[in-house]
Design a protein around this nucleic acid. Structure first.
Lengths: 160, 160
DNA sequence: CTTCATTTTGAATATTTATACATTTTCGAT
DNA sequence: ATCGAAAATGTATAAATATTCAAAATGAAG
């Protein structure tokens, strides 16, 4: 849902930027940002986002988003990062989004998107350098952008 | 103290197997291996080893070692494998270990070791074909060998 | 719109993990 | 060996986190 996606993105960013050492702390930060939620939801979100808690010299423990928890993930991550470099731009028309890529990248990038089955996108069609994304009804442009950033964080710079 | 090191090594190994989902579970595994300890000690060990818990599709949650030995990407792994080929031999004198390498390999190999910050080694000094490893007090020769193998699995053949 | 199924969430709670405090162990210096 | 300081550990408990269960929200299909 709209709020869920936004919330998880905000959580991710809070963890990336700040030094969060407990769910309670994160809960307050989220509430300050206007989100309404409880610790239970936070716990579920952290699970979904694969956030981990590790010891830290300064704060005892901090939440982190592991770069590569195992080799498989790591390889997949760097593959996704590599593919995200092929992104050119994104434009909208109604409930369609058109992503343009460097030549040859479209089908691999579309596969990455399909694979993570974002709620906001009901399907993709890829050519050689263009991907057509069919957005679910009721999804806003920024919802879609957020969900793409969740899949490929690197896109944040280009989509900000 | 010998026991502490051995125990933490064993914990590391158990975690690397990738199938531990709670401290209680790990506690039983350790006890089966003949270690006497409690959950409190385990919690402290995991903190020291910077072990983290992340969600996992199969088991709900699993413990992982987020940064270091086993989380290198493919390129890094093959680089380490390559460097490990430069290893010649290892000798001990008190709490010092001297690793000899093929000419030119020493500093890169030492960097690999430093980078993974093994508990057992408090520092290294590298020349062109020799690395001096300063061992933490209380660490045995085989503890050190084990930790090197953890960093560079290829060494197992030459050190086993 | 209404109904049914599915997903999301909160409240309460169970489970898990971290730590305060006391005790024991280790180790160096007599 | 004996002392004292520092480190390690266990017990008990506090703190943090995950999950159960019920309710609410959402979505699909008549």
């Amino acid at each position: 849902m709209k709020n869920r996606t936004k919330r998880q993105l905000a959580i991710k960013q809070a963890i990336l930027s700040g030094r969060i050492s407990s769910q309670d702390e994160l809960l307050h930060i989220m509430k300050d940002q206007g989100f309404e939620l409880t610790q239970a939801t936070l716990s579920r979100d952290l699970k979904i986002l694969k956030v981990a808690k590790v010891s830290d010299q300064a704060l005892g423990y901090v939440y982190v988003i592991p770069e590569g928890v195992n080799t498989e993930n790591q390889r997949e991550n760097s593959r996704i990062n590599f593919l995200a470099d092929g992104f050119r731009d994104l434009q909208f028309s109604g409930n369609l989004a058109v992503m343009r890529t460097m030549p040859g990248y479209a089908s691999s990038l579309a596969a990455v998107i399909d694979n993570s089955e974002p709620y906001e996108i009901i399907g993709t069609i890829a050519g050689d350098d263009t991907i057509l994304l069919i957005m679910r009804e009721g999804i806003t442009h920024s919802d879609l952008i957020n969900s793409l950033i969740l899949i490929m964080p690197k896109l944040e710079d280009k989509l900000g």
